[in-house]
């Protein structure tokens, strides 16, 4: 049975790969998954947008220290970033039922002004192929994923804004 599954999958995938080769590099769009906002609204991730300007999606959790470090570092410069580039950050928490209700008081208590989303059973995370957090994506004005990075080290935020600037510059060309 396993053999059949294996052959089937390989066949399917090879089919996909052959047929999806197009001369132009195709960029992924955001998958359609339901997540919740901090006040309990359900929204579709395929509809995330920033009025035609680039935006950032950052996967994090309360128990992930490098994630919190990254969001803390960006919080200090977020206003400047927004003024300069108009970028918006969706901070997607993958905290499960154990800690997801601690997300809102922590975000407010830390004075974070991100658009925070709750992905309590990691469905969005799975659809975005995130293995480890922190994992960050930059999405351009057309809704295409143009850059991603996993892990965070102090100063890593400088690369992020650099990439946002590049996305802006290339959209103007």
């Amino acid at each position: 049975m396993k053999k059949i599954m294996f052959t089937l999958t390989i066949l399917l995938l090879s089919g996909f790969v052959t047929f999806t080769q197009t001369p132009e590099k195709k960029l992924s769009k955001l998958p359609s998954v339901k997540v919740k906002t901090l006040d309990g609204k359900t929204i579709n991730t395929a509809e995330l947008s920033n009025d035609g300007k680039p935006f950032i999606i950052s996967f994090w959790a309360l128990w992930c220290k490098p994630c919190v470090k990254e969001l803390t570092a960006i919080a200090e410069v977020y206003e400047e970033w927004q003024k300069e580039t108009g970028v918006k950050i969706y901070a997607v928490s993958i905290d499960d039922a154990r800690s997801s209700s601690r997300v809102k008081p922590t975000v407010d208590g830390n004075n974070w002004t991100y658009d925070v989303l709750l992905d309590a059973n990691s469905e969005f995370k799975r659809a975005m192929n995130v293995n480890q957090i922190p994992h960050m994506f930059i999405v351009n004005g057309k809704g295409e994923i143009v850059w991603q990075h996993t892990s965070f080290a102090d100063g890593g935020e400088l690369e992020v804004i650099e990439e946002v600037r590049k996305v802006l510059a290339s959209s103007k060309n």
Partner: peptide, 12 residues
Amino acid sequence: TATYSQKGLGIY
């Protein structure tokens, strides 16, 4: 679960 939060303060 009950929460109260405002800018700079979160209670859970």
